[in-house]
């Protein structure tokens, strides 16, 4: 049976949607699309058998407030768990975590994975100018490593660089999202977390941000003696252990670069629903002229399935 698993698929607990609109994270029509019924309709049209849900980026005001961060994570996770049981086989979820509050995060990991049976966890690329891999997050990564948890990551408007171009108002998704993913990748690799936590499985959104294009710089940074010592098998070896999704990344330029830099064995299908529609994503991937039928099948589900035991 043809299958397609979408790892980059955003829904949110209905009562949280108005707050996300107010914070500028969602437009009204994005929020309107974020119901299970609309999502299932899009999945059916795009041949997506299963979508692994995660919420949109939490607003900075949520990240900055411990109680709000905790309730944002918990309420979304309860909602996502209900969707899993209400629509057997169609939905999984990556549990939101109340980052950067490490003690609360450890509690939510336990609850979400052990009680709610999440398929993995959802992390933003940075929180308050601390990127994934920062020493302050070490207890979180050590716990996720111990559990061999699948980590799905997503960029946000980074604190350092929210709307830096004052005269040209463009969404941070244009430039800043891709860059923040690249920063998180670099920080995980060169900061030592990826070596210290060898059992982590990490998915980077949007074909790795801009990392594949900046690979020459990564190779040079890895060649500096102090870094070379930390990466005995080289930087590409570390980068190939990660997974990369195709959300907003079905353009031939990106697919070609992924293929050149890390190969396609860890490339996984993502739509970015409701910002991307799955039939469009499928059509664009097929039209890119980069992927063979076998590669397409692997991206659709075969590459990710070993990491999602619930759906095997």
């Amino acid at each position: 049976m043809a299958r397609r698993i979408d790892v980059h698929h955003h829904l949110a607990a209905p009562h949280l949607l108005p707050g996300l609109i107010d914070a500028g994270i969602l437009l009204k029509h994005d929020a309107e699309a974020m119901t299970a019924a609309h999502a299932l309709d899009d999945m059916d049209k795009g041949g997506v058998t299963t979508a692994i849900n995660s919420p949109p980026a939490p607003p900075h005001a949520v990240i900055d407030n411990r109680d709000r961060a905790i309730s944002f994570a918990r309420e979304n996770n309860e909602y996502f768990a209900r969707l899993v049981s209400d629509h057997k086989g169609r939905f999984g979820f990556f549990a939101a975590l109340p980052m950067p509050y490490v003690d609360a995060v450890l509690k939510e990991i336990e609850y979400a994975l052990d009680t709610l049976k999440a398929d993995g966890v959802y992390l933003m690329t940075s929180y308050q100018d601390h990127w994934l891999g920062d020493a302050v997050f070490a207890p979180v990564f050590d716990e996720l490593n111990r559990r061999k948890t699948l980590i799905y990551t997503h960029p946000l408007s980074p604190y350092c660089c929210t709307k830096p171009l004052k005269e040209v108002v463009m969404p941070d998704a244009m430039i800043e999202f891709g860059t923040d993913t690249t920063r998180a990748i670099a920080n995980m690799v060169f900061g030592g977390t990826s070596r210290r936590c060898p059992d982590l499985r990490v998915i980077w959104s949007h074909a790795g941000g801009t990392m594949p294009f900046l690979i020459y710089r990564f190779l040079k940074t890895a060649g500096i003696p102090v870094n070379a010592q930390k990466l005995p098998q080289g930087v590409v070896h570390e980068l190939k252990r990660f997974y990369y999704d195709t959300a907003q990344a079905s353009h031939p330029v990106l697919l070609t670069a992924l293929k050149q830099v890390v190969g396609l064995e860890h490339t996984v299908f993502g739509s970015d629903y409701p910002w991307g529609l799955s039939p469009t994503c499928v059509a664009e991937l097929e039209a890119a002229g980069v992927l063979s039928a076998d590669e397409m099948r692997a991206i659709d589900y075969a590459n990710i399935l070993p990491l999602l035991p619930r759906f095997q």
């Binding site: 100018d129 920062d134 920063r183 900061g191 801009t210 900046l214 710089r217 990564f218 940074t221």
Partner: peptide, 15 residues
Amino acid sequence: LLNASGVDDANIEYG
């Protein structure tokens, strides 16, 4: 931004 990890500005910020 990533000084602590030995990643200089030329690696990511320049591009």
